[in-house]
Simulated assay, not measured.
Amino acid sequence: MFLQSLHLKQFRNYRDQAIEFSAPKTILLGENAQGKSNLLEAVELLATLKSHRTSRDRDLVKNDETIAQIQASLKKELGVSALQLTLRRGSRRTAMINGETLKRQQDFLGSLNAVQFSCLDLELVRGGPGTRRTWTDTLLMQLEPVYVHILQQYNQVLKQRNAFIKQHTADPDQPPPLDPTQLALWDAQLATLGTRVIRRRARMLQRLIPIAQSWHQAISNSAEQLEILYSPNVTIDSDDATEIQQAFLSQLQAKAMAEYYQRTTLVGPHRDDITFLINQTPARQYGSQGQQRTLVLALKLSELQLIEEVVGEPPLLLLDDVLAELDLNRQNQLLDTIQDRFQTLITTTHLGSFDAQWLKSSQILRVDQGQLLKA
């Protein structure tokens, strides 16, 4: 797939900016806080309907404006698509494909595929379980857009079950007993939907892990061995839905007293985690900065490869000021991998990381206070 054009209206610090992409690689050059990352964020929204920088649409709309728009022309093997996202400060966003407004936003997913890589991605290794769950879910949404609906259903039932537990444990000194019949209904719904989440996460990681291990071995010159372990909160021994559901329900019963006093749901994929080991040592606690960066780079390259395998077309690669975070060996590994295989948008404050051949085959645009100029 190839992003032919992008048009931003009242988005972040862009008032009305149209961009035509004329090369497989586009370098966005400029000082910090000029709008380079904002442009990549717009493409990320088209791919995932999410921003890794904010969860509120009002943050994406330019100051003193009420509506922002992201428009794009995307060429794929099946033809050219016109994509549009309209973001509003005070109401729901709308998504359009080829001039048709979609009833469900999730139908927009899969129109454009992209992998975002920024310095914030080191939190994948260093951060808490929630960061790794979000990473897993965001990738799954691109591979299986229906997963958005599954995850929403699970989170809704989780929210309602938590409200039910809190309602009946309002006074910890004299709590009324939980209605076992009603609780059993919430348990059954949570286990059914949670099983669907667990199975999809497990299957996706099963495909991703050998790809990531291969990349990691290449980047580390076979000096390090990477292991990635999915740690579901519900202990599973197989992919069988019935067995996972039974395990889920058994663990809910085992945790019933703890949930009663903690007033929250303690069992389910909302408590999953992923463990990264380098040479059998936890990378989060004991990995050096270089090892952690190598790991994240391997993960991002494996995302690219997996999306290409599943979707059948190479996704876009969005590199947000990451070259400065990588040493020369990792820079070269990344740039050599990209070549012209993936359309790449890359932000930087200087051109020193690129060799002459890379610069020659790239479109270079200077970003200055929300305006793009040819460098």
Rank of each mutant, 00 (worst) to 15 (best):
Q245V: 07
V148Y: 13
L120I: 09
Q17T: 15
S111A: 15
N221V: 02
E100G: 03
W358G: 00
S362V: 00
Q292W: 06
T265M: 03
I228F: 09
Y261K: 06
L317G: 06
L365K: 05
Q251A: 11
Q34H: 15
S37D: 03
D273G: 07
P176K: 00
W358L: 05
L205N: 04
N63L: 14
G194R: 07
P172D: 07
V367E: 03
L297F: 07
S222H: 15
V148W: 14
E224W: 01
F11C: 11
T26D: 09
I307P: 09
S361Y: 01
T101M: 14
A247C: 04
A163P: 01
D59A: 09
L178D: 01
A212K: 00
K75I: 12
C119Q: 14
W135P: 00
E123S: 14
L6R: 07
R93C: 09
S37E: 03
Q116F: 15
L190V: 02
R161W: 01
S111K: 09
W215A: 02
N32I: 09
T344N: 07
L299C: 13
D239W: 11
D187S: 11
K50R: 15
L335T: 03
Y154M: 05
N98F: 11
Q289F: 06
T294V: 03
D64H: 13
A188E: 15
L359K: 08
V125H: 05
V197G: 07
G268L: 04
Q152T: 11
T86Y: 08
L140F: 02
P175E: 00
A23P: 02
E31Y: 06
E44C: 12
Q305T: 15
D173G: 01
V80R: 10
S231T: 08
A68V: 13
A256I: 00
P269L: 01
A82C: 06
V115H: 08
A256E: 02
Q206R: 12
V197M: 10
G79N: 08
P180N: 00
S37V: 05
R293W: 01
I236F: 04
T134Y: 05
L39P: 03
S111G: 14
Q156M: 09
I364T: 10
L193K: 08
Q105M: 14
D336G: 10
T48E: 04
T86N: 10
D327N: 12
W135L: 06
L205A: 05
N332Y: 11
Q156H: 13
N38C: 10
E227P: 01
G30A: 04
K360D: 15
L345C: 10
L208D: 04
Q363D: 04
Q10K: 11
K9M: 12
D237L: 13
L319Y: 04
D121F: 12
V322H: 03
S118Q: 09
I274H: 02
T348A: 12
L351H: 06
A191G: 05
A218G: 01
E44N: 13
E100H: 11
L8I: 13
E313G: 07
W135G: 02
L326D: 00
Q69H: 12
T275C: 06
P24L: 03
L83N: 07
E313C: 09
L334T: 02
A170C: 02
G128F: 04
I209G: 01
